[in-house]
Design a protein around this nucleic acid. Structure first.
Length: 253
DNA sequence: ATGGTTGTTCCACAA
């Protein structure tokens, strides 16, 4: 089984890239973030033509998440239960016996800002809900754009902003891991300076001036079955790319 | 020190 995650920064604009990527990698589940479209405008037909169904929680202009799958997605949950939020950032579903939780974590803008406080509140609510969700689903994958680089290896040495690498954000990431989740990427030896996001500006991709902020976290049952985790930089090299690369895990299931 | 880019939109705002 293959599970992947990709912040596409507008599904409308990135649809050709997504269709190509699905054809090449044939994931069983793909979590998408920042689809930036309302439910009525979701390109369900184009995806169905290449063999994928979708569950989604769309929003105009900002945010929006989806899970694409070849098998039927069941027990769909939209948003964090009990956490009122206008912003569409979470969708969860069970696919082929695996609970896939897809999240677009808040950016946080700048440490100490109002948006940063929202990020921390959101992380707290997500963590509380995940505790129950993991207890109910031993095979669970938390995928998405976390907007957190977990440790020093995950940020370019010249990264100077506090946001994405601050102590409170990293502490929140470790609290999620402490629920019993494993960073799939670090189960394997990886190239140094492996990143999943590069700013559009200042030739950041060319200089590999990036961060690893897109993650797949796995419960122990899935971590034991995990045989590979890779960041696919290929779509980032295309014309009109997303600023994020997809992350893909292989599971011996 | 500033500005550099992209997407959606009413041209500013979020990333």
């Amino acid at each position: 089984m293959k599970i992947a995650t990709w912040n596409v920064n507008s599904l409308k604009v990135r649809l050709p890239h997504v269709l190509d990527w699905l054809a090449t990698h044939q994931p069983d589940a793909l979590g998408l973030q920042e689809i930036k479209c309302e439910d009525a405008g979701f390109p369900a037909e184009a995806l169905a033509e290449v063999g994928y169904r979708a569950v989604f929680d769309g929003q105009k202009t900002y945010n929006g998440v989806a899970i694409l799958s070849r098998s039927e997605a069941t027990d769909v949950v939209r948003g964090i239960p009990g956490f009122a939020d206008e912003q569409k950032r979470v969708i969860a579903a069970t696919i082929d016996g695996v609970r896939v939780v897809c999240g677009y974590f808040p950016n946080g803008q700048a440490v100490g800002s109002e948006k940063f406080e929202y990020k921390l509140r959101w992380l707290e609510a997500l963590t509380a809900w995940l505790k129950d969700e993991i207890a109910a689903h031993p095979k669970l994958a938390l995928v998405g754009d976390y907007n957190i680089a977990p440790d020093e290896r995950d940020a370019h040495p010249d990264w100077s902003d506090e946001i994405h690498v601050s102590e409170p954000e990293r502490a929140a990431f470790y609290r999620i891991e402490a629920l019993g989740l494993n960073d799939a990427f670090r189960l394997f030896v990886q190239p140094e300076q492996s990143f999943s996001w590069w700013d559009y500006r200042m030739g950041a991709f060319r200089r590999n001036y990036g961060l690893r902020i897109d993650h797949v976290l796995l419960t122990p049952t899935l971590a034991e079955a995990c045989t590979a985790c890779t960041i696919d930089k290929a779509p980032r090299k295309l014309e009109r790319p997303s600023d994020h690369a997809p992350v893909l895990v292989d599971l011996a299931l």
